[in-house]
Amino acid sequence: MIDEWYPVGLFSQLDAVGRRTALMGEPIDVARDAEGNAKVTGGNGRALPACVRYGHVWSSLGTPQKALFAIPEADQPGRRFVDVGVVRVRCSPLRAVENFLDIAHFPFVHTDLLGAEPHTEVQNYKVEIREDEVWATQVKFYQPQAAKSASGGITTEYIYRVPAPTCSVLYKTCPPRPSEWDVITLFVQPLAEDLCDVWPWMALFDDTTSMTDLIHFQQTIFLQDRSILENQIPRLLPLDPGMEIPTRADLTSVAYRRWLKRRNYTYGAQLVAQ
């Protein structure tokens, strides 16, 4: 678990003073060094691995065995990259990711934006493990205002991808360019097992909406989720079946929990039903 890459800050906001934060319980400092590179220092002053990708600085308490997961769309010309900024949530990092993978809550939590009654039905979709990542495809949902660039309701198609235990990438119908997908990500920094900093990030085709409007739209969505995430019991994500009851609409969540368990990823998880 300590060998994974985790987001620890927005690169655009780094200065020489840096930011004091934490990673899995250990205090760390994230700063920009004299050459302009990101520098991450652990609690005892040791230098931690650092890389800069998708607008964020990534680090690890251990020794990452492989490079950070790829998002090919991040290099595609014509996209606008949106640094949404950090939001702290008192919940397990895994609960934050699982909520991001969920569509059935849209009508109740993101009312009139991502969903609205009576359009509550979740149709069947496909979930599979591809190259050790969780993928959910052909996810469709009716949305009153799917994106800032959408005018009026549309049935939106989603593809979800979990390339790392605390990160998810969402590909979503792109209203101005039907042949392309908008990319919206959720990068979660585990501060502790029940506390996380969430860094949403986007790579969109949208030439008309102002950057601030794009940021505000995504912050709106995430802040609507926050009050849910802080009121789930238990705070940790139960990995053993029995404690919570999934339905067909929750196949992505089921696959995510199984995938975590198989990888023995237990940070922020609860293993035995209590």
């Binding site: 009121n231 789930q232 019991i233 238990p234 139960p238 404690m243 919570e244 339905t247």
Partner: peptide
């Protein structure tokens, strides 16, 4: 009980 058995959300909300 103040807990939805689906995902553990507090029902009092």
């Amino acid at each position: 009980a103040d807990r939805c058995p689906h995902r553990g959300m507090r029902l009092s909300h």
